[in-house]
């Protein structure tokens, strides 16, 4: 059964028609067409699908799209200011925190949400904040370095 709804993503209102059991991840990728958010495990384990709903990180693969109506959704595409990367995105590039890139959108969302709540985190706090985001390339050291560098740059 299709339901007409409006999803607010990165400050834009998108009219969509969604099945009652559509996930937010599928709505963002398939209906809205923003493919920065990745499908990883599709089982609420890996964090590749992470987006912010009203400023808080959420695994979009296990969130019903229609529950997000009336909320502000932020995807990785919403973190940059036009062509200008955020300090966090630049730090990921500078520190080598990106290898295959598949986990990167979710990592960036988690890292942005962390600095929003805690602008000066310890490395342990960074690692805890990113513990729901799995990366099979980097071993996490360079990602943690990047988040620490971004925190310093924006302090």
């Amino acid at each position: 059964m299709k339901h007409a709804a409006t999803l607010n993503v990165n400050g834009m209102a998108y009219p969509v028609e969604l099945e009652g059991d559509a996930t937010l991840l599928n709505a963002i990728r398939e209906d809205i067409g923003l493919t920065g958010t990745k499908t990883g495990c599709d089982d609420c384990e890996c964090g590749a699908c992470m987006v912010m709903v009203d400023g808080r990180p959420v695994n979009s693969c296990t969130y019903l799209a229609l529950q997000a109506e009336g909320s502000e959704i932020t995807t990785v595409e919403g973190l940059a200011d036009g062509e200008d990367l955020s300090a966090m995105q630049s730090a990921f590039l500078d520190k080598g925190g990106v290898q295959c890139g598949y986990c990167t959108p979710g990592m960036l969302v988690s890292a942005h949400a962390l600095l929003r709540r805690n602008p000066d985190p310890s490395e342990e706090e960074v690692r805890i904040a990113l513990s729901g985001n799995l990366c099979r390339c980097t071993g996490y050291a360079k990602i943690a370095e990047a988040v620490m560098a971004a925190a310093k740059a924006t302090a």
């Binding site: 009652g20 059991d21 996930t23 599709d42 089982d43 609420c44 695994n59 693969c61 296990t62 969130y63 019903l64 229609l66 529950q67 009336g70």
Partner: peptide, 27 residues
Amino acid sequence: VVAGGSDLIVQARGGRELPGNVVAIHR
């Protein structure tokens, strides 16, 4: 009934299909 959905959606994908109606209480 669905609140956050984190259990319900995982279960639905695991074979315990959602019924014909879902009532979201998160608002």
